[in-house]
């Protein structure tokens, strides 16, 4: 997808005041796409979330432009066995903690991330809690918290 096609999609009429258009991007091109977006005026990365679909991980980026007052959503799909993608924190610094949270709760590895550590769970926690197949076999938990 090149820059003009991309801009054509993003300038379309928005479906929803909050969401704006939704674009699916290949995970290898995400850093390029994000840099283009930053230049085009989408200066705020409102949210970065991850969804555990049973066959893949889906990362959803939510951009907003304070000048144009428009939103845009970008989705990428990751492999479920080895979820890895490039970090966008070099372009949008606020992605730093969002990516740490996704790593903490889902186990997605972000390459080139300045400080990829657990954020919400205690240090030394095993497992990635928000995955659908998370069944804690940790002996530290009481019997009725294991499944």
């Amino acid at each position: 997808m090149n820059r003009d096609e991309f801009l054509e999609i993003t300038d379309n009429k928005t479906l929803d005041a909050s969401s704006g258009p939704v674009v699916e991007v290949d995970k290898l091109k995400i850093l390029e796409v994000v840099s283009v977006l930053k230049q085009e005026g989408y200066d705020m990365l409102l949210c970065l979330s991850c969804v555990d679909c049973s066959d893949c991980f889906e990362i959803v980026y939510n951009f907003y432009s304070t000048f144009k007052k428009k939103s845009l959503t970008v989705k990428i799909k990751l492999d479920r066995e080895y979820p890895e993608v490039v970090s966008v924190s070099s372009v949008y610094p606020c992605a730093n903690w969002y990516e740490r949270e996704v790593f903490d709760l889902f186990g997605v590895i972000f390459a080139n991330h300045p400080d990829l550590q657990r954020l919400l769970m205690p240090e030394g926690w095993m497992g990635y809690p928000l995955r659908k197949d998370y069944a804690p076999k940790d002996s530290r938990l009481r019997w009725n918290e294991r499944r």
């Binding site: 709760l105 657990r118 954020l119 919400l120 769970m121 205690p122 809690p129 928000l130």
Partner: peptide, 10 residues
């Protein structure tokens, strides 16, 4: 942070 994580999303 993380001292008040209650797993709201899960």
């Amino acid at each position: 942070i993380g001292y008040l994580h209650r797993g709201m999303e899960k």
